[in-house]
Design a protein around this nucleic acid. Structure first.
Lengths: 124, 124, 124, 124
DNA sequence: GTGGTCTAGACCACA
DNA sequence: GTGGTCTAGACCACA
């Protein structure tokens, strides 16, 4: 995993895992890797990993079972609402950025269509 | 101006000024406020302001005239290309985020329409 | 049984059993469940249970009979004095906490009355 | 400051500072000692202190001003509600403990009166 | 000088 | 082996 040096690593990890859970890559109730394994995998210090996981736990996306490890929340409502929240937050931020550049909604939609077409082509 | 405490202030200022130039709020060739005035306006340390301006200069959006101060670039090509670059970068990043959440292009466009409608309503 | 993750489990068990003995739920001389059964009942590792019982034995509330298991102490004096000790310790600690918050004795007594009334009502 | 080895130090610090704020020992808006000074004063590692302060910030009792330090919240409502919350929590816990020991409310109140009298005498 | 982040590594409670 | 806590100490952004 590549880290952007302008944002705390632990927050970048939080975002990444959040997406994985919310998009279903980690299923509800699934066991997560141990702190040490996860840290090794991402090449960060276990403490940094610990901090990221504590944050996710505070948000209710994962929970800890003493001595047996951490698990993805089984609460589909929380997971779903965080998904929606994220999508809306991304969209609002994006629209704000584009409006500041004086893009109108129809221009934005056209641009999305164009870029999407290019990307679809590249994947072929 | 409100700063997000998880991102260097100077970078947030760079973004803000970049938008102002690229969107035409600062016209090509226009004189910019002095470092001190600018810093005072944003309630920021002059060192921080200095750093932000140096960054913009490195990107070619502003230039320094020895004794008379800093000016917005007159190079419409650079300004225009940075504008497009920014719009494309924002859009790609946004699409990547939404695709990770398993949103399809038509769902994205619908969501944009919805949020846009809400915001238009709020502005009335 | 629910455990507070910020305090060692074995100490929470010690407290719980101590209350049971001192309040008469376990009678003097009564045989206690085996370590295994007790551990199973509380959904806890036998090592943890063992440790809790060793602690209670050190305090004189239970004793071991080589082959036949553990028993609640028959020494009513010890049991009674621990009961008083606990009540006084709880009360001192509580008064200290409340005085730190600048509650006066009459305010404390009023608050106890209020909360007690609410709880009595809830139990109906 | 003495620490109980059965509870995380950072949580003991949180409790202690919380009492200080809520009881008015630290006034609203008052500047707190720097992390390093505070840590030295309590003879703990700056990271431990940092963690305690982050927790208090999450609860809204203090806030951080970039580079100039941490300050006690000016929000009297939050401070007051945490005070009440604490008093009620202490009282409920205390009553639960005493009821488990089969103390009745009037006995509890008598005991409080007795201990209070003794303490008042000692202070003379 | 102020807070924030990160690493390296020890030690503990519990299973 | 699992997570949790703590220390020591480096380095960064910002004033």
């Amino acid at each position: 995993m590549e880290f952007d040096s302008n944002k705390p690593i632990y927050l970048q990890i939080v975002d990444k895992i959040k997406v994985s859970i919310v998009s279903g890559k980690y299923a509800p109730g699934e066991k997560m890797p141990s702190v040490r394994d996860f840290a090794a995998e991402l090449a960060v210090n276990p403490n940094t990993m610990q901090r990221a996981l504590a944050q996710l736990e505070a948000e209710g996306l994962i929970y800890t079972e003493r001595t047996s490890g951490r698990f993805v929340s089984r609460d589909a409502v929380i997971i779903g609402s965080i998904k929606d929240e994220q999508a809306i937050a991304h969209t609002k931020k994006y629209l704000k950025q584009m409006h500041e550049l004086h893009y109108k909604t129809d221009e934005i939609i056209r641009l999305i269509g164009d870029i999407d077409a290019v990307q679809a082509k590249e994947e072929k």
